[in-house]
Every structure is written in structure tokens, then in C-alpha cells.
Computed example of a mutant assay.
Amino acid sequence: MPAHGKVLATKAVLRHTFLMPSHVSLTINQISAAQTLALRQAVLWPEHPIEASKVEGDETALHFGGFLGGDLICVASLFQDGGQDGGGVRLRKFATDPAHQGKGFGSDMLVYLVAQAREAGASDFWFDARETALGFYERHGFTTKGERFFKKGLPYWRMSLALG
């Protein structure tokens, strides 16, 4: 299998702990798609049924959870999804509990996910970002591509980061 396929070819348990300046640690573990749904819905689509938080390919994607103590406070999913050379990794359904936003936990998760994709040989890391989150992603080196578009009435931009 090509190196870029390793991102989604493994189902090994991955774990990483980030120490926050306040000595609070975020532990990142691989989790199931089902474990992501409640937080996805609560943060991203609270006015829609939980089924709206499911996406095609969830069964083959890698899903990650950020835990503070025993509480799941952040989720994200990585999908093997194209790019110019077929080595792209797509981030989808990235959500952090609003009570924990602005504390660096989402940044820790994003840095971890980009590192995982890079280690696996992915050439491109991309996603569709809500317009309200552009500044967050730009601080991490992502740039917009194309024109603004809408999903369920909300403005989005395609963003990406070359990993090669």
C-alpha cells in the first residue's frame, strides 16, 4: 500500500497526551464513529437530528477523541480523500465542547492530526471550514482555496495545508 494510504489503513490504538500550561492534560485516543456523534451534533448541528452528524465513509475513517479527565471534549475524523496526487487526508466533523473552546484543546487536536497525516505520508490535509473558524485555521498555516459556499445555510471555505 502506498505510504499515503497508511493514514486510514491502520486501526491501531493511538494515544497522545498534551500538557497544557495550567498542567491540565488533553489525552487523544482513537475512538469509534459512534462515540463522536453526540459531541458532533451538540456542537455542529444542534438543531438537526443526530443522523445529520453522520457522514458517508464514517465506517472506514479514523476517529479521534480528546479527553479531559474522563470527559470527551473534542472529536475529529480523518478520511482518505484525494488531493492532486491521491494522497490527501480530509478532516471532517471537528468539534470541541463550547465550555472548553479557547483553551488550546482544539489546537492540540489539530496539531496532532496534522502530525499523524504527515507521518503516514499524506501530501495534503484539507477540509471545509465554517467562515467563523477561518482565523483559527489560518493561525495553524491553512489557506483558503476557491470561493465561499454554503452548507445548510452556513458559509464555508475550503482550506488546505501542503504536507510534502
Rank of each mutant, 00 (worst) to 15 (best):
P2S: 14
G5A: 15
G5H: 14
K6E: 13
T17I: 09
F18K: 05
F18Y: 11
M20K: 08
P21M: 13
P21L: 13
S22A: 12
H23V: 08
H23Q: 13
V24Y: 05
V24A: 10
T27C: 12
S32Q: 07
S32K: 06
T36G: 06
L37S: 08
A38D: 12
A38T: 11
R40D: 01
Q41M: 03
L44C: 00
L44Q: 03
L44D: 00
W45C: 15
P46G: 07
E47V: 08
E47S: 12
E47T: 12
P49N: 12
P49M: 13
I50Q: 09
I50N: 02
I50S: 04
E51L: 06
V55Q: 12
V55P: 02
T60D: 10
A61N: 01
H63S: 05
H63R: 01
F64K: 03
G65N: 06
G69Q: 11
I73M: 05
A76H: 05
S77D: 08
D85Q: 15
G87P: 02
G87C: 09
V89D: 01
R90S: 00
R90V: 06
L91S: 02
K93P: 01
F94A: 07
D97V: 03
P98Y: 15
P98A: 15
A99Y: 04
H100M: 14
Q101E: 14
G102R: 11
G104V: 01
D108R: 05
L113G: 03
A120M: 08
A122G: 02
D124I: 10
D124R: 11
W126C: 05
E131S: 11
T132S: 15
L134W: 00
G135E: 13
F136H: 09
H140E: 03
F142L: 15
F142A: 06
F142H: 03
K151H: 11
W157G: 02
W157V: 04
L161D: 03
L163N: 07
